[in-house]
Simulated scan of single mutants.
Amino acid sequence: MRNFSFLSFTIFLFLGCSSFKIVPDYVFDSTNKKELYVKSYDETLKLWNVPFEETDVVTNYGIAHVIISGPKTGEPLVLFHGTDASSTMWYPNVKDFSATYRVYAIDFPLEAGKSISNCIKLNNKQTAVFYDAIFKHFQMKNINLLGVSRGGWMVTYLALQPNNKIKKIILLSPAQTFGGVANLGKVLTGINLKMYPSPKSTDKFFNAFSYCPDKINSVFKNQLYLAYKYGNSKPRLLNMMPFSKKELRSIKIPVLILIGDHDIVNSEKIFVKAHKYIPNVETAVLHDAGHFLSIDQSENTNKIVVEFLNKNE
């Protein structure tokens, strides 16, 4: 396991974007705040119930922090977390995912986490280049992508890129991918938490986004609270437009979409569009699950995901 280094960011003086700052980064405005957050991140990683390693990958758009687990000979499964949740959010899932797959969990560089962007913002094409550099660094082939919420949108976007090596994609309540918000009032608790971070607004957020908030480990809850208290993530909602019929039709690889029956972001209405336009898609609703279905119903989520990955097409 390798410790995170703030000094590593200085190598981007002549790479990528021309507008940047070196210390500390675009998400945290002081080294002390960053260190407090990273300490909470590392505490959550203690919940990672399989052996893992942390490594940094240099790209033209920043440093990608990657948590790796599973057999070296396993087919790659790349995990894309939800907004500000960081890769540590996969603590209830990684054991099952990494039993046979080589799992790579990547922190998004303009949100709280250990990745660092050298640009104050990244457009979609730049973000795709960022991830492609990581895939090439690890020489990935037959890549499986799994994303939740914002991560699900990004996974879909990457599947649309030409000459990719993606085998299957899995979308857990993907935000903005098919359009609309099921319950805007409850979704706004996320905006409230970002604007007014406090233990109270954090509780309201988890109660809205999770159907089983008591299942969420308090260590991870504290990490997310500190992400909003100390961090200043760069929302990408304006970059995340719903995909067109033509784009969805062009996705020929197998696609799995899961949502919770108490999901405040997506309802079963998205399945109508998915089945109409995506040639090879499977969908399912997890009972007693909210937007945080990967935690609310981790065992069922893990089972369905692994069965989908293992299926020969």
Rank of each mutant, 00 (worst) to 15 (best):
I134Y: 02
Y157D: 13
Q126D: 00
A133T: 06
F138T: 04
A128L: 13
R150K: 15
L160N: 11
T127V: 11
Q139M: 14
P162M: 12
Q139K: 14
K141P: 12
N124A: 13
N142P: 08
G147W: 00
Q139G: 15
Y131M: 14
L145D: 01
G151C: 15
Y157M: 14
G152V: 06
K141W: 03
V148R: 04
I143E: 01
Q139W: 05
G152R: 07
M154E: 09
D132H: 11
M154K: 07
A159K: 05
S149P: 10
L158G: 01
G151I: 01
N124S: 06
Y157S: 15
Y157V: 12
G152E: 04
P162I: 08
N144R: 03
P162F: 13
Y131S: 01
Y131L: 10
H137V: 13
A159W: 03
N144K: 02
A128T: 10
Q126H: 06
I134G: 06
T156Q: 03
Q139D: 13
I134F: 06
N144M: 05
D132N: 15
Y131K: 05
Y131W: 07
R150L: 15
V155M: 02
A159N: 03
F138Y: 07
L158S: 06
T156H: 05
A133W: 00
G152Q: 06
D132Y: 02
A128I: 11
G151S: 13
Q161R: 13
Q161C: 13
A133Y: 02
H137E: 12
P162K: 11
F138D: 00
N142A: 13
T127L: 14
I134E: 04
Y157E: 09
F135E: 02
L145V: 14
I143S: 00
T127A: 08
Y157R: 11
S149H: 03
F138M: 12
F130V: 02
K125E: 08
V155K: 08
I143K: 01
K125N: 06
W153P: 12
N124T: 12
Y157F: 11
V155Y: 01
L158H: 00
I143L: 04
I134D: 02
G152L: 14
G151F: 00
T156W: 00
S149D: 04
M140R: 11
N144D: 07
I134Q: 01
Y131A: 03
T127C: 10
A133R: 02
L158P: 07
G151V: 12
T127G: 06
M140K: 00
L146C: 03
I143F: 02
L158M: 14
G151W: 07
S149I: 07
V155T: 10
G152T: 01
M140F: 08
H137G: 13
T156D: 01
V155C: 07
N142L: 09
K125A: 09
K125M: 10
R150P: 15
L145H: 01
K141T: 14
T156L: 11
Q139C: 15
F130A: 09
H137D: 05
T127Q: 03
F135C: 09
N124Q: 06
S149K: 03
N124K: 10
T127M: 15
Y131R: 05
V148H: 05
L160P: 15
Y157K: 12
K141G: 10
A159I: 09
W153R: 05
Q126M: 11
G152Y: 01
K141R: 12
Y157I: 09
H137S: 14
N142G: 14
V155A: 05
N144C: 11
G147E: 00
F130C: 04
L145T: 04
